[in-house]
Design a protein around this nucleic acid. Structure first.
Lengths: 150, 150
DNA sequence: CAATGTTTAATTGTGCACAATTAAATTTTT
DNA sequence: AAAAATTTAATTGTGCACAATTAAACATTG
């Protein structure tokens, strides 16, 4: 079969290069991959790292609170947090005052990871090859877009 | 246990709000969700939609070519393309001139989806609430970042 | 030409994402 | 207080992502 090229102007809008969604999707995945070597050294996955960023800042947090901050639901978080519990990084227990809630706290091993993780952001920043101003501007734009989409 | 707040300046770099990776990750997922109602109407997933964007522009393509353009490997593409084949959207056959390659072509049902899909980009654009200039600028920035990360 | 190395998909196994459902605890309404 | 509605996690099932391995086809080298 001969190669067919379909470049009719009415289809311009469907070209991959004209989409915003694809670079977003691809950059997100490639950036996660850029974290991989550092996270692997800590035996962490990227979503687990995000949960730690929250807990290192404030703990304990309920599954609901983590879900609201990371925009993830219990279908994702419950098994993820169980794996983090198995590694003795976090505790999971029902809130005695509201048995519906599960409270996630840091265990010593999870708290100890922070010291090793705090080198990661600067090493990623190097890989990005962006100025601090560009970094902040892009982050602001994306946060605006995020609030538009949520 | 009392809530612990850890805001020591040496940990600022680990705060979720200071990361670029999180808004990228979250916007990517929320944007995919914004596509959901339109894709659901065509019985498509988002990665399948991306494959179609490529094939509508040019076909046939090998699995390798699709993987290079979307930055996906055969572990993702093989089962995805098999599902698309099952729905009679695409054909999958070994290249007779190089039996290592699998050539993906459009079938009539897959070609027909283009007409229904071409309304999607403008509807997404509305949801984004961005000017054309902002849209293009952000896309350019992300494409730059993508080439930096690949 | 035979041996070696490379390329290409497929396979296997793990961990997200997420829609949909379920079940228990709590809150609100009557 | 009893009934109804809401909230919260957990569960189930599907479909990516991706690392690592395998196997076949092809290319290169001696």
């Amino acid at each position: 079969m001969a190669t067919s090229l379909n470049s009719a102007p009415e289809n311009e809008v469907l070209k991959l290069d004209n989409q915003l969604c694809f670079p977003l999707y691809a950059v997100s995945r490639m950036l996660t991959k850029a974290y991989q070597p550092y996270l692997l050294a800590l035996d962490l996955t990227y979503p687990q790292y995000l949960v730690f960023l929250l807990l290192w800042e404030q703990e304990p947090l309920t599954v609901k609170e983590i879900g609201e901050k990371l925009l993830l639901d219990s279908g994702t978080l419950t098994p993820l947090l169980k794996r983090m519990e198995q590694k003795q990084w976090v505790s999971r227990q029902r809130d005695p005052h509201d048995e519906r809630s599960v409270v996630i706290g840091l265990l010593p091993a999870g708290r100890a990871l922070q010291a090793q993780a705090c080198q990661i952001p600067e090493q990623i920043l190097t890989k990005l090859n962006m100025s601090a101003a560009e970094f902040t501007a892009l982050r602001t734009q994306l946060n605006q877009l995020l609030s538009q989409l949520t």
